[in-house]
Amino acid sequence: MKPFTYVLPHTLAEAHTAAKKAGAVLKGAGIDLVDRLKERIEAPPEVVNLLPLKNDLAGIADDGGGLRIGALTTLRQIAEAAALQGPAFGAVRIAAGLTATPLVRNRATLGGNLLQLARCWYLRSAAFGCLHGGKGPTCLAMTGENRYHSILGWHDCVRVHPSNLAPALLACGAEYTTFFDGKQERRPLAALFPDEPTAQKAEHTLRDGEILVAIHLPKPSGDVRSTYQETREKDSFDWATTAAAVQVTLQDGTITDASIVLGAVSPVPRPRAEAAKSLIGKKPGDAAFLKAAEMAVAGASPLSQNAYKLSLCKAIVRAALTEVTR
């Protein structure tokens, strides 16, 4: 790590002002940031630590309209939260519980998980200069080693979005609140991720100094269930090769609402609206799930080394739908 000034704000406003300064970065637990600093792919002059604001920024509470999860809530707290025990939010709970390792989950925060830098091995090494890192003319993975990279919706950079929680929260209809210039603003979660995830775009759409404050989950009505599944190469700590978060509403044995969101296959978490729509009005069953899984990867364009992820992606959608309607 290069030297930096460590800033401890007393209020969100102080944090915002400090983080707006050129080169300043915000940190929660620092799980992602410390790794980037150790790799020396970044050298911010100032690191603004949000942990002193835990009072305001951590915790899960019912705010009347639904659940509010503070951005500094740890992944472990989410995985174990009583408020998330119901079937509607299974996806969120499970996605949090599968992330990284128990040791990481004890510190890693919701905000950090959603906003972390992509885990591409070219991007994360100071030895390489790539387009997304702002240090090179091309995406090195596109024509290099790309077995773990995008198969869907990529442009000039084939990174995958690394967050487990993003697809889960999207599938559950989450919104997010940020703090910027003295105001709190609330938007649908999809707005946190760029529409066109080109190399120039960051993993998220937050402005400099904008602070993610909380995620909101709507109150479920009716028989709403969700789950999250991922494929990986081993059960102990591994990155997902593909992930699927699904939420369905069942009424009298028929699917009346559905959402399917893919993770680890595209530079952003990918809602698959058409695939989800194909389930509406159907009774749960393997034929419907297989069709939805097929539709979920429609338009995919795998790279030289990752066509296998297509099969995995279909399998995981099918598996998640099977699980959630069981």
Binding site: W121, Y122, S125, A127, F128, L140, G144, E145, R147, E233, K234
Partner: peptide, 14 residues
């Protein structure tokens, strides 16, 4: 599980 994955262009382990 185990395999060293190399970047052919740079010759560097990924």
């Amino acid at each position: 599980h185990e395999q060293r994955l190399m970047d052919k262009r740079s010759g560097r382990m990924l």
